[in-house]
Every structure is written in structure tokens, then in C-alpha cells.
Design a protein around this nucleic acid. Structure first.
Lengths: 140, 140
DNA sequence: CTACGACTTCAAGCCGACTTGAGGTCAATG
DNA sequence: CATTGACCTCAAGTCGGCTTGAAGTCGTAG
């Protein structure tokens, strides 16, 4: 299995080396050893980094993401938590879906001002309400 | 037209007053005057704030959002930009869908380690691959 | 065998998006 | 007319997520 140095990982992910070191420090990724001082990564780190990027997009913090894996790097076995994360994600996905539809509509809508378009107005309302819901959850 | 003080705006949007002041300072919203020291807002600020929240959810920065209004405060939404954002969002949504399915499966799967489960691996790969494609686009 | 350059560490800095705190002002109520 | 308390300003602080800079360490090419 080919081992990658930090520059290779940086190049193929588009992430700065500093960021990879930062992630390692945070326990988000692990290097498999050193050649001299230099870190060596397994190729699988690329997959891991993709997941991290993905989860970030989903709105998870790095700490939360760290919590999704165990020490050995396998996704954590807490099925209840995984399930909860999945539900979170589902919420997010639905929200983003509504948003996407709204944006598309706004881009195509012939109304002179977006504010005069009922569809757009409905979207705004939805955005605020779903935000609300999340706030409520955060408090709970 | 009823004028609102900052507390009313804060309450009906769920945003902290400090945040509203911050937004005003940034030019994102405007107050229509003062009663004594106290800001007075038009009711339309609520709609404006919804739009701001919406754009934030869509991943725009406050500076970008500030650029979405003209001098008179009417949204100046670039349809091309909206469309592009919608496409972004669509990508994200699909990837998140794969991630959600992966997590859900992981929560239900009886395999001792998730990585040994072919379904899980396939789902992750789906998420990762679409991510890769984006990196390539970013590089290009 | 020495010099180069890609890596290393560690601390500090930066940016976005707010929040917090100290001290001030004013309209309304008793 | 004095107090109260909701608002005000301005500066500084916080937090997440990195980046930057100075100083050090290697393996490899010349």
C-alpha cells in the first residue's frame, strides 16, 4: 500500500498542509508513521478527508466530526448517535432542498422584484421557520 | 405603518439585539430613525432579516449578502448567481444524502465493523466520489 | 560530506460572525 | 422631578477553523 507524504495528500485533496497537521492534532486524521520527521499517511486518509469535508458541509463542527470515529478510525459504534446524526442530516437536506428550489425559482421567476413573487415569499418564511426549529432544538 | 424597536425585532426574529446592531453597522439592515437614542425599524426589516438568514443558510457570507441589495434596499439578486448557488446546493444535497444513508445504514447494520459492510463502503464511496469531482472542478 | 529544500514544532496571528462589558442617555412611571 | 430600566456606544473578547512565522531537523542530490 502506497504511503503518502503530506505534500501528496495536500495536493490531491486541495487542502493546505497546515490544515492537515491541524486535523491530525485534533485527532481527525492519523498518520501511520514517519520517515525521519516527515509524516506518512495511508492512502485511506484521502477517503477520511473527504468525509470530513462532507460532514463540514453538512454543518457539523470538527469536534462533532471527531466524535463520529473511534480511535482506530472506524465510524463509531454508537448506533443511536449515528441515527441521530442521520436525522439531523435529513433535516438539513430538506431545508437545503427547499432553499435550492427557491433559488432556482427566483432565478427563473419573471416577477419584477423577487419580493413580489409569492413563491419566493413563501420560501423566506420557510427559511425563518426552519431556523427557528433548530434554535429550539439547540436549547433543548 | 407600525415601527418596531429593537426588542420587538429581536423577539420576532429570534436574533439577539447585539446581532441586529451588528448588522446595521455592516449595512445589512437600516433603522428608519430614533426615538431618543432608540432605533426604530420599519416592519419590512423582518423580511429583510429573513432574506439574510436565508442567504446565510445558502452559504453566502455577510459581505456577499450586503452586495445583494441596492441603495434603496431592494434585493438586487443576480439570477445567474442564484442559479449557480442552486447548483452548488444540489451537489451538496446529493452528497449529504449519501452520507445520511451511510450513517443510517451504519446504525442498523449488524456487521461487526462498519467498514466491513459492503453497503456502507458503497455509500461512503458515493459521497466521496462526488466530492472528488468538486475538487477537480475547483482546481480547473 | 555538505548544502539544499521539504518537511517539522510551537506560538502567535487572522477572519468571520457575533457577544460581552463598562459606562452613558433618555422616556416613562410613581 | 427623581428613579428605573431599556436602550445606547465603543472597545474588547470569544470561538471555530485555520494560516503564518521563526527556528530546527532530516534525507537526498551534487
Amino acid at each position: 500500500m502506497k504511503l503518502l507524504d503530506i505534500a501528496e495528500v495536500a495536493h490531491s485533496t486541495g487542502m493546505a498542509a497546515s490544515r492537515l497537521r491541524f486535523y491530525e492534532e485534533k485527532g481527525l486524521i492519523g498518520s501511520i508513521g514517519r520517515r525521519g520527521l516527515k509524516r506518512l499517511f495511508e492512502a485511506s486518509v484521502l477517503e477520511r478527508l473527504s468525509l470530513i469535508a462532507l460532514a463540514q458541509t453538512a454543518g457539523f463542527s470538527l469536534d462533532e466530526i471527531a466524535g463520529m470515529f473511534d480511535q482506530t478510525g472506524r465510524p463509531r459504534l454508537d448506533r443511536v448517535q449515528l441515527s441521530a446524526k442521520a436525522d439531523d442530516l435529513d433535516q438539513t437536506i430538506r431545508r437545503l432542498g427547499a432553499l435550492r428550489d427557491g433559488l432556482r425559482h427566483a432565478a427563473a421567476c419573471p416577477a419584477p422584484s423577487h419580493m413580489e413573487c409569492p413563491t419566493f415569499r413563501r420560501l423566506l418564511k420557510g427559511a425563518v421557520e426552519s431556523r427557528r426549529r433548530r434554535w429550539v432544538e439547540d436549547l433543548g
